[in-house]
């Protein structure tokens, strides 16, 4: 009986005491500075190597298509046109000579999975991931980014030129084929082996 009463009163005391402790804790939290970051007004600094929107410095692009091949979701589309020896496309910032017109360099950022795999193979480091993450659009079409700097007119001119050069090259080749074949280079194996072991 006495122990039951004791338990009864200790329970009441403990209930009140623990409630008081809890109330004190929550009251102190009332004056703790809040952890909320009010996003559009206040922005956190992203880590240095954050991967967000892709950017292509088209002036440095040599049209090698390696990024497009590395992309696991096929969000990069590149089309190139061969340049003729008479035009100088300039050099990249790294000093590589550009040999191709990049007529199309499209990134469908809606498809992009931000893996960053396209960044590593780029020989001229022209495709990079930036820290821009606010690029929501109302129209999905607007998420298709065109990085190529060529106008349609320029593309037509370049295409025609390339075609002409190709035709000329083809003509040259045909002419070369018509001419007698030069002797085979030394060291090359004969066209067909006379014997096959085992037969």
């Amino acid at each position: 009986m006495a122990t039951a009463l004791k338990i009864y009163f200790t329970d009441i005391y403990r209930a009140l005491y623990t409630v008081a402790v809890g109330l004190k804790l929550t009251f102190l939290h009332l004056f703790t500075p809040s952890v909320t970051i009010q996003y559009p007004d206040v922005k956190l600094k992203l880590p240095e190597r954050a991967r967000n929107r892709l950017y292509v410095n088209i002036d440095d692009c040599i049209g090698c298509d390696q990024c497009s091949m590395a992309c696991p979701v096929d969000c990069i589309t590149i089309q190139t046109i061969k340049s003729t020896p008479d035009v100088d496309l300039g050099t990249t910032s790294g000093g590589n000579k550009k040999r191709l017109y990049v007529s199309q360099f499209d990134i469908d950022i809606a498809k992009c999975c931000y893996c960053g795999l396209c960044v590593y193979p780029c020989p001229t480091e022209c495709i990079v991931m930036t820290d821009v993450y606010e690029f929501a659009e109302f129209d999905r079409q607007n998420l298709l980014y065109n990085f190529s700097s060529m106008t349609p007119a320029e593309i037509t001119v370049a295409k025609e030129k390339a075609k002409k050069a190709e035709e000329e090259a083809a003509a040259k080749k045909a002419a070369a084929a018509a001419a007698p074949k030069p002797p085979a280079a030394p060291g090359t194996p004969p066209p067909a082996a006379p014997t096959t072991p085992g037969t």
Partner: peptide, 13 residues
């Protein structure tokens, strides 16, 4: 507001 501040948030702003 009280709910938010007890949880270290800010609520309506």
């Amino acid at each position: 507001k009280v709910s938010a501040h007890i949880q270290d948030r800010v609520a309506y702003m």
